[in-house]
Every structure is written in C-alpha cells, then in structure tokens.
Amino acid sequence: VRQEELAAARAALHDLMTGKRVATVQKDGRRVEFTATSVSDLKKYIAELEVQTGM
C-alpha cells in the first residue's frame, strides 16, 4: 500500500511542478489536496513515505 501512496504522491508533485493548480492524494485513508503553495508539505509527505518503504 505504501508503494502505491508513494507513487501517487510523486505523481501529484509532478503535476504541481508542471503547472497543475491542485493535486489530490489519499493520505491515511482520507483525501488531501495540495497546491503550489503546499509543495514543501507534499515533499515532506513523500520523504516520510520513502522512509516507511525503505527507499
């Protein structure tokens, strides 16, 4: 499950970095929206997932 969450989070980051205004991911069973202003929060979430998956 964590691998899927990590892939979704990375895709969301890619979307935001390429101009999409809002990206949505499932985080702990709930839907979370990230915007360009919350990229740093999304990067932290990705880092947490990488630690949890041993990457």
Rank of each mutant, 00 (worst) to 15 (best):
V1G: 11
V1C: 12
R2M: 12
R2C: 11
Q3C: 11
Q3S: 12
E4L: 07
E5P: 03
L6N: 01
L6C: 03
L6T: 02
L6Q: 02
A7Q: 13
A7L: 11
A7P: 03
A8D: 10
A8L: 08
A9C: 08
A9L: 14
A9T: 03
R10L: 14
R10Y: 15
A12K: 02
A12R: 02
A12I: 04
A12C: 03
A12M: 03
H14F: 12
H14I: 12
H14Q: 11
H14V: 13
H14D: 09
H14W: 12
D15F: 06
D15Q: 12
L16C: 03
L16Q: 00
L16R: 00
L16M: 02
L16A: 00
T18P: 00
T18F: 04
T18I: 10
G19K: 02
G19Y: 02
G19L: 02
R21F: 14
R21I: 15
R21N: 15
V22S: 11
A23G: 07
T24I: 15
T24C: 12
T24Y: 15
T24K: 06
V25T: 04
V25H: 01
Q26C: 15
D28R: 02
D28C: 08
D28G: 09
D28L: 03
G29M: 02
R30I: 15
R31Q: 14
V32A: 04
V32E: 05
V32I: 12
V32P: 02
E33G: 03
E33M: 08
F34Y: 07
F34G: 01
F34L: 03
T35C: 07
A36P: 12
A36H: 13
A36V: 13
T37V: 09
T37H: 12
T37D: 13
T37P: 03
T37N: 15
S38E: 15
V39S: 04
V39P: 00
D41F: 06
D41V: 13
D41L: 11
D41C: 14
D41H: 08
L42C: 00
L42A: 01
K43L: 11
K43Y: 14
K44T: 05
K44W: 04
K44S: 10
K44Y: 09
Y45F: 07
Y45D: 01
Y45E: 01
Y45M: 04
Y45Q: 02
I46Y: 00
I46D: 01
I46K: 01
A47P: 00
E48R: 08
E48Y: 06
E48D: 11
L49W: 03
E50Y: 07
E50C: 06
E50L: 11
V51F: 14
Q52M: 09
Q52E: 14
Q52I: 09
Q52L: 14
T53A: 07
T53C: 08
T53F: 09
T53W: 11
G54V: 06
G54L: 13
G54Y: 09
M55R: 04
M55F: 12
M55K: 07
